[in-house]
Design a protein around this nucleic acid. Structure first.
Lengths: 124, 124
DNA sequence: AAAAACTGATTACAAGTGTAATCCTAAATA
DNA sequence: TATTTAGGATTACACTTGTAATCAGTTTTT
């Protein structure tokens, strides 16, 4: 699995919002949430390319970036990894921890029910 | 939140197995799963103390270590953090991702149902 | 008592990370 | 055309992390 740092992920996440995109578009998107210097973001873009998380095409003297994988694919792998490390690969204890500490809303519960429902239909 | 590295967490996890414990007990526990040198584990213990994740008492010339927080408390915070970063704080999309990629077993589903059930009883 | 072994403390060192600044070249502007 | 500017490439630098080795003092062993 490609290992991304937190900052790298945030840049990739900005690209996932809408791609392909140029560096300056990505910088513009991030400027709302982060106080990163433009140079910082370019460094991170370079590292993402080096790690194989992004590809680009030249257009004039600019690069047009695209992610090399889908967000869902990446977050699924990260999730598996996380759940393996902290909960021996089982997902229920994570949810249970949230429930016990009253971190679950009725909406969460409804959404979870729907996920279960869909899963069961799928099995049939 | 105290930030622990992967290696640090594994050492702390070994301590959570049973504590208080001495360095050599922790080293013994870890020797099954990891090929870490004894010195490496002691370094990690030192870093955990420095970060405030462990405390110790002297007993003769040894230290008897204890974790400064419970495992459930730590994993809950990590989970919140994770879900915030990757799923904007909502837990269902994580579970849904697992479901879609066929990572959920019937047992997982049963456990999740139970969590939901308990939550609903709690609400009443 | 001298040597060996064990404990924690200190030091080491490369790779990764956050956070840019500087350099170099091409394009835009004055 | 001379200069400023915008883009990417290269360099920087402190802090963290993985992974120990060395040091220094105290028990054990011989």
């Amino acid at each position: 699995m490609i290992e991304l740092s937190k900052a790298e992920f945030e840049v990739l996440d900005a690209l996932w919002q809408d791609y392909p995109a140029t560096a300056s578009q990505i910088i513009a998107r991030l400027s709302d949430e982060k106080q990163w210097h433009e140079k910082t973001i370019k460094t991170l873009l370079g590292r993402l390319v080096k790690k194989g998380a992004l590809s680009f095409e030249k257009e004039g003297r600019q690069y047009i970036y695209s992610p090399c994988m889908e967000r869902a694919e990446y977050t699924l792998k990260e999730s598996q990894n996380f759940i393996e490390r902290f909960f021996s690969g089982r997902i229920a204890p994570l949810v249970s921890g949230f429930a016990k500490s009253e971190q679950l809303s009725q909406q969460d519960i409804n959404e979870l029910k729907k996920v279960i429902d869909d899963w069961e239909k799928q099995q049939k």
